[in-house]
Amino acid sequence: MTEFLFFGLQTKSNKPIFSHANLMVFTASWYELLGMKLSGAWRRDADYHDAIHILRQIGDKNRSDTLKKSMSFRNFSPFVDDQTFIKRFDRTWSDAFN
């Protein structure tokens, strides 16, 4: 019997980058990835360093726009309230750009 292990992000993107009979891969925006990282289970080292890298890819041109866009992609589960998300964003932003 064959077993399959799957990890995926449910993206809102409709742009496939790979398609096969049993697999379809879509793009995800940097904002989508950041929202996922900041609202996930927050495994401190892995998610924190990933979030810093993602923020640096987005750039530091418009902090409020980046926060707003990334919040729109928060995970439903585990749920993270606005205050917790913003606190994580603020710390990550500070460490990424200061």
Results as ranks from 00 to 15, higher is better:
Ser64Arg: 09
Ala21Thr: 13
Pro16Lys: 08
Arg74Gly: 13
Ser13Ile: 05
Asn62Gly: 02
Leu5Ser: 01
Trp93Val: 05
Gly35Glu: 13
Asp60Val: 01
Phe79Met: 07
Met71Cys: 01
Thr66Asp: 08
Arg63Asp: 11
Leu5Arg: 01
Pro16Asp: 03
Val25Trp: 04
Thr27Leu: 11
His49Cys: 00
Ser13Val: 04
Leu9Cys: 02
Asp45Thr: 15
Tyr31Val: 02
Thr92Phe: 09
Leu34Phe: 14
Asn75Tyr: 13
Ser77Tyr: 08
Arg88Lys: 02
Trp42Lys: 10
Ala46Ser: 15
Asn75Trp: 12
Asn62Trp: 05
Tyr48Asn: 00
Val80Arg: 05
Phe97Leu: 12
Phe73Ala: 09
Ala96Thr: 13
Ser39Tyr: 05
Phe73Lys: 08
Ser64Lys: 10
Thr84Trp: 02
Asn14Phe: 06
Asp65Thr: 08
Tyr48Trp: 06
Gln10Trp: 05
Tyr48Leu: 03
Ile54Leu: 08
Ile17Lys: 07
Phe6Ala: 05
Asn14Met: 03
Lys61Gln: 07
Gly8Val: 01
Ile52Trp: 11
Ser13Lys: 02
Phe4Lys: 05
Pro78Trp: 14
Ala28Ser: 08
Phe79Gly: 05
Leu67Glu: 03
Thr27Ala: 12
Phe6Leu: 11
Thr66His: 10
His49Val: 00
Leu38Phe: 07
Leu67Asn: 01
His20Tyr: 15
Lys37Trp: 00
Asp81Ser: 11
Ser94Met: 11
Pro78Phe: 14
Ile54Tyr: 07
Thr84Val: 06
Pro16Val: 08
Lys12Pro: 00
Lys61Glu: 07
Asn22Ser: 12
Lys61Val: 01
Leu34Asn: 13
Val25Gln: 04
Lys68Phe: 08
Arg88Pro: 01
Gly8Gln: 01
Lys68Tyr: 10
Ser94Phe: 12
Ser19Thr: 15
Ile54Trp: 06
Met1Pro: 08
Asp81Pro: 09
Ala96Ile: 13
Asp47Gln: 04
His53Pro: 00
Ser77Gly: 02
Gln10Thr: 09
Leu23Cys: 02
Gly40Thr: 08
Glu3His: 02
Arg63Tyr: 13
Lys68Asn: 06
Pro78Gln: 14
Gln10Asn: 09
Gly59Asp: 07
Met71Tyr: 04
Asp95Trp: 09
Asn98Leu: 12
Trp93Gln: 04
Glu3Val: 03
Arg44Cys: 10
Phe73His: 12
Ser29Phe: 09
Asn14Thr: 10
Lys15Pro: 00
Phe6Gly: 04
Leu34Tyr: 12
Tyr48Val: 00
Ser70Glu: 10
Gly59Met: 07
Lys37Met: 00
Arg56Val: 09
Asp81Lys: 10
Ala21Val: 14
Ile17Val: 11
Ala51Cys: 06
Leu5Pro: 00
Phe85Cys: 06
Lys68Asp: 06
Leu9His: 07
Ser39Leu: 10
Met1Ser: 07
Gln83Glu: 14
Asp60Cys: 06
His49Tyr: 02
Asn75Asp: 13
Asp90Phe: 07
His20Asn: 13
Asp47Thr: 01
Leu23Glu: 03
Ser94Tyr: 11
Gln83Cys: 09
Ala41Arg: 11
Ala46Glu: 15
Asp81Glu: 10
Thr27Val: 11
Leu67Tyr: 03
